[in-house]
Design a protein around this nucleic acid. Structure first.
Lengths: 333, 333
DNA sequence: CTGAAAGCGCTTACAG
DNA sequence: CTGAAAGCGCTTACAG
């Protein structure tokens, strides 16, 4: 069946259908401004089916100048729960656009532009910061869109950012609404979380200012029961004593809850606690954890929309701010 | 600089270095059995640097017959924590082999073989079952290796399976060692978890038989406090009363713990509980959760090894069984 | 040691 | 309405 080497090519289909490769291509791509008689069309499709022909993506990509992938470039970040869920949804959204997700880790010092030149994707989603020069280079190099930066304040064009600062401020707003005036912040020391942490803390700080609260008492701690107990004691015995804790995420929140219990305190009376992420276990902590859900489906849908618009040259859609975030009130605060 | 269209090609480099494209390619690929004088070599590399030349992956792929990606095909499974971690590690491992991970969702009825023909990846990792015919087709179609099936009993060639049945049996073994004779099983009703759940349950069943325990009392429940309370009451009031619960994962385990607390029971005295996954919050439940950790790094390393061997035509390495699993003993069982 | 040339499988002006 | 031909940018026998 195949001409040689086993692979079925457009030429094989053309022969079988008694047309030229050109016609095969026109039919398969629904090329506009071509009028192909239904009868011919059917003959081609029949041959395609008959021979189980699948166009080779690399050949098409070489010709077109770019392939049907969205390159996702990840720095050394741990692939956390929320990001995983976003990617999960995103693969589905992109599939609807005929695109697959190509994941690549990028190491410090590697040039994103070089990777883009190599891969020639339809679009790029870069996690983390991309400097102006590289952005220029990428946008200039191909016609392809380069989009997105997760988690950073939206400084640049086509930036998708999950508003980390807003997370911090939502946490504070909820605690303030519950009457808390003196807040503590429990976050990680690990530099890999730095970017996220600093944005969240700064959002919290700003909200405190706006609401006339004290600046939160920030503590960096390890995720151990001992560290949590110590932190809890520190906050509880301070003057004026801290009455509510903003946790970097549910993990820290759960640690604080466990630390409180070990220290003989109970939430939310002695100390209220609010987390971030709405981890699956969060509703089963005791007391059940109040937290901020970053809606992965909203983020993924927006990301896909940005890519779609970018590829077709349209302006980026308005980024969700509060829409991507949901306060989940349970018992801990 | 570039000949036209903006893109710098091997020809531009060749001109700049005063050699032919052939030589450029030889230098860049370290083609064996070629003896290129150091001086020429340097001249080429210098030109490459000068022009910021990056070979176009699609062109190379077209020529070679396959590209430098590993196609990861996912069925409709939710991308859970463990799988995310595996993928996270895997991207790093594959990067070391010069491969990127291409994620594609596959819908029921879509032909995996067709996707492979389209993408022409260096290797395929298919999650879920792939029938024999398609396996043949994929292996036959290209020279590329098709590998892996997560979670299924290793029936076929090149199969990587995280031994789900072993998870169930490890859970039972631990509970039995603690003196429990009458066990309950708490699992999901959602059919998307069916494959995993059934394997885990069957592993648990088998272990019970081998150890002379009763068959576990399996309950399917929703992840709500109410459902958990009801289940707890059911097990507690049964005759003979169940004394330990095997949970499908930490989420179910945490639900059971919360249900127990709501029902006035305490773990592990009234009912011991063991989970699976070692979720980040698991060490902060009260009491801290005993669980089975599926070591994502071990699984990822093995997966990468399978791919590496497959590509170079070597036999698949022995699959980890117990090595990929670790019993994490805390307080709940 | 080096280069001219073929060819991987597509798409798309262009000519009829 | 249809096809012959060029060309996307590589790699690799092959010939010198």
């Amino acid at each position: 069946m195949a001409s040689k080497g086993g692979r079925v090519t457009a030429l094989d289909v053309a022969r079988a259908a008694n047309v030229s490769k050109t016609t095969v291509s026109y039919v398969l791509n629904d090329t506009p401004h071509q009028s192909i008689p239904e009868e011919t069309r059917q003959r081609v499709l029949e041959a395609v089916r008959e021979l189980s022909y699948t166009p080779l993506a690399t050949a098409r990509a070489l010709r077109r100048g770019h392939n049907d992938t969205v390159l996702l470039v990840m720095p050394d970040w741990p692939l956390g729960r929320v990001l995983s869920l976003v990617l999960d949804d995103l693969t589905g959204e992109l599939a609807n656009l005929g695109l697959a997700l190509l994941m690549r880790r990028i190491r410090k010092g590697q040039s994103l532009a070089a990777i883009c030149r190599e891969v020639a994707p339809a679009a790029v989603i870069a996690l983390g910061h991309v400097d102006e020069v590289e952005q220029q280079e990428i946008r200039g190099a191909g016609i392809f869109l380069s989009t997105a930066v997760l988690s950073y304040p939206s400084s640049t064009q086509n930036t998708v950012s999950v508003p980390q600062d807003l997370i911090g401020s939502l946490q504070v707003q909820h605690l303030a609404a519950r009457g808390h005036r003196h807040l503590g912040y429990a976050g990680p020391a690990d530099p890999r979380f730095e970017a996220f942490r600093d944005l969240r803390i700064s959002g919290a700080r700003q909200a405190c200012q706006e609401l006339g609260l004290d600046d939160p008492d920030v503590l960096e701690l390890d995720l151990t029961l001992e560290a949590a107990m110590e932190a809890v004691r520190h906050w509880h015995h301070r003057t004026p004593s801290v009455t509510a804790i903003i946790a970097y995420n549910d993990e820290f929140a759960a640690a604080i809850l466990a630390g409180m219990r070990a220290a003989g305190l109970s939430a939310p009376e002695d100390l209220a606690v609010i987390g971030v992420d709405n981890e699956p276990l969060a509703k089963f902590t005791i007391p059940a954890l109040t937290t901020i859900d970053q809606k992965p489906d909203v983020v993924a849908a927006h990301l896909a929309q940005v890519v779609r618009n970018g590829i077709s040259g349209k302006a980026a859609p308005k980024a969700p701010r509060t829409e991507a975030l949901e306060l989940v009130i349970r018992e801990s605060a």
